[in-house]
Design a binder for these strands. Structure first.
Lengths: 227, 227
DNA sequence: ATCGCGGCTGAGAAACGTCTGAGCCGGGTG
DNA sequence: CACCCGGCTCAGACGTTTCTCAGCCGCGAT
């Protein structure tokens, strides 16, 4: 689910957008002035920002400018009554990702937002997201695993297996599914190889005192969990 | 330098855009019909596409649709005389990144293109900015590298390799991707050349006591990090 | 307590990935 | 021309990883 920050000075627009975008399955935080907007945006907890330019306090331009200066690269959709070409170009060159002229169509706004979120998802999909689970951290970008800050050296297969399990915490994953997830569609591999690799994993996890996170679910498969 | 594909059926628009965008420092390929556009786009050799919807052969929509279906995620800026909100929304939902209504302002077009290219560069980590990482400094403008203020002399390839790794700190980069980033799309180069150059890099980094920043991630690639 | 089955493990063979040194090529320089 | 340097390929050595097999263990039901 996407978290979107909506910034507009008119309460009517705020409630309309909040209602409409919530119906589209987004989680909305709406604020009415530049200072609140900047404070909210700098938390980095948003996937996109809809930003009116003419607002009390810091202008939309300034908010955008300071966000980028602070290294926050959340996608921003500028909204303004100004339809001059220079305004649009300036906004985009300040680091915005789109520009909508008021009065805008809600349908277009949603489509623009979706386009921006789609790009973000594509970028994230390549790297994979880090999983934290009690003292266990599985970090796909660096392909590293730590237990309470102690690094655990894993081979590629071992890593993939642990990651496949850690992605679904406290959920039993069947051996057949692990075969599919980690070993691919090759039918060649026998189910025993999963047991062998769980063995390898356990040995390495045990060595740092994390043996209990990887449990057997008899007759089904395995699960990693915090319990 | 960015490579941009321009698709429009009017030769006048094509030459105007080609001239204007070239002046902005972009490398332009211009075509006038949907079939040529699709063929060009599917090569994947472009950083962005400016795509008119109403063109001979496949429509712009179709071109976009087939690009995405083929897994080509080059940013696309749709251009059309249709200003209906549904047209815009449809285009964006088909996978476009922006929508410009004809007649458009050239300044806005350029700003939109730049915004799209900026996102792409950020995602790929090619901002051209200096990278600092512990005691390691990689400075693209001057093509110089220092470890705790001690300069490290690198050949061009060595520099590109280190820079490719350093701009994504603590992230394992696959050998295939390094080949693409540093050696270009030429399939000719073997994967071993990466290993050889990592060897060269390590020798030089070791000589100044920075050997540990460049680590092997077995079965995957390499990473530079502070750890 | 005993039995049966699923799960676990040690050993070993084969494949794989990594690194290195030797050496070729081609372009620029003295 | 001879030389050097950077870029690259190749083949070999070495350790690691992957996987299979065979047999053992132990859970849970009777």
């Amino acid at each position: 689910m996407a978290r979107v920050l909506v910034v507009d000075d008119e309460p009517g627009v705020r409630t309309a957008l909040t209602r409409g975008l919530t119906a589209e399955g987004m989680e909305i935080v709406a604020v009415g002035d530049g200072d609140s907007a900047l404070r909210a945006a700098l938390t980095g907890g948003f996937d996109a920002v809809v930003l009116d330019i003419i607002i009390p306090g810091l202008s939309g331009y300034r908010v955008l400018e300071r966000m980028r200066a602070a290294g926050v690269d959340t996608p921003v959709l500028l909204v303004s009554a100004k339809d001059g070409e220079v305004d649009q170009a300036d906004g985009l060159d300040l680091g915005a990702d789109g520009y909508l002229v008021k009065p805008f169509s809600f349908v277009v706004l949603v489509a623009q937002l979706r386009a921006m979120l789609r790009r973000r998802d594509a970028a994230l999909g390549r790297s994979g997201q880090r999983v934290r689970l009690g003292g266990l951290v599985v970090d796909p970008p660096s392909r590293s695993v730590t237990w309470e800050d102690t690094p655990v050296e894993l081979s590629p297969r071992e890593f993939e297996l642990l990651y496949a399990l850690a992605r679904r915490p406290d959920t039993a994953v069947a051996k057949d599914e692990l075969l599919r997830l980690v070993w691919g569609d090759e039918q060649a591999a026998s189910r025993n190889v999963v047991e062998v690799y769980v063995g390898y994993l356990r040995r390495k996890l045990d060595a740092v005192g994390a043996g209990h996170v990887l449990r057997t679910v008899r007759g089904h498969g395995y699960l990693v969990g915090s319990g």
